[in-house]
Design a protein around this nucleic acid. Structure first.
Lengths: 157, 157
DNA sequence: CTCAGTGCAAAGGATTTGCATGCCG
DNA sequence: CGGCATGCAAATCCTTTGCACTGAG
């Protein structure tokens, strides 16, 4: 796990920083940062892809399905996780982009798996400009864009 | 409705051409181009946005819900319609891009409505190149990309 | 005649909700 | 103590499926 010294010279690792931010956002929403919510955040932080509910449950033992759904909803309202849907049966959750970094998704038509990827910054910037134009023409107030690549992953080809 | 003369000088309008293509693709799949399927195609061709099942039903009276679902599945397998899911309750269907033109979606977080938009060709081209690179790095066999702008439409702001 | 297409009703399945209990603050 | 968090089971709701009937070729 990556570490870096803070202003006072102490060492803080990324998961501690994440914890602090999540805690703050939950409190701001009048919610507690419970054990179960921490477990969900931990699993999502370690995954390099958005996870379905079954995947979340198998990676953090003993959570009731309904509670997981409820807690994911709470975390989403607090702005720390983001829910995405593909054409797959299950929705998937990932940490919000300000907690990770801007990225896109490779979506496999075969197994339904989703993995992250990024495109070069200069292209991203051009794209943003073009999208801002398009939104303004349509009188649309855009909060973010979503760019997916659909096809077959290496295993499914 | 736009028209253009064909090779023999006769005038064919776009919906006739569409009909011919859809018919051919359905036959190729061993399926018939029935009245109900034609109704669905007509409604989709007139809409400038992907439609949900309720929207499809109210725009083409008298179709049974289950038959509509079934026919949309047939039309999708034949490669003439495309099914998309947002975070909305319902899936949405639109004509495939080779029957319309490459476009993207404005997705409203408020009312769930989806409308089409395009970005300038040169940006689209750069984006394609970047995506091809990313796919190749990941060993991913990409068939198409999907670019959405998420936010609030003019009515929901 | 035959078989795909259709409508109705019932089944599926991911997600949500009601309710009683447990636990943190 | 009070109220939120949790687990279980039941309810929702979009979508799919079973089955009998109709209609096109």
């Amino acid at each position: 796990m990556s570490t870096k010294p803070d202003a006072t010279g102490r060492t803080i690792d990324r998961s501690d920083q994440l914890d602090i931010i999540v805690d703050r956002r939950l409190r701001h929403d009048g919610q507690r940062y419970t054990t179960q919510r921490r477990a969900l955040i931990d699993v999502l932080a370690e995954a390099d892809a958005p996870l379905t509910l079954p995947q979340l449950l198998e990676r953090s033992a003993g959570l009731a399905q309904s509670s997981a759904y409820r807690n994911l909803a709470v975390l989403e309202r607090a702005g720390v996780v983001h829910r995405i849907v593909t054409s797959d049966d299950h929705a998937r959750w990932e940490l919000t982009e300000d907690l990770t970094e801007h990225h896109h998704h490779l979506i496999c038509r075969g197994c339904g798996d989703v993995t992250d990827f990024t495109v070069p910054t200069d292209i991203e910037r051009r794209l943003d400009d073009a999208l801002a134009d398009a939104a303004s023409v349509a009188g649309f107030d855009a909060t973010h864009h979503r760019l997916d690549l659909v096809g077959l992953c290496s295993r499914c080809q």
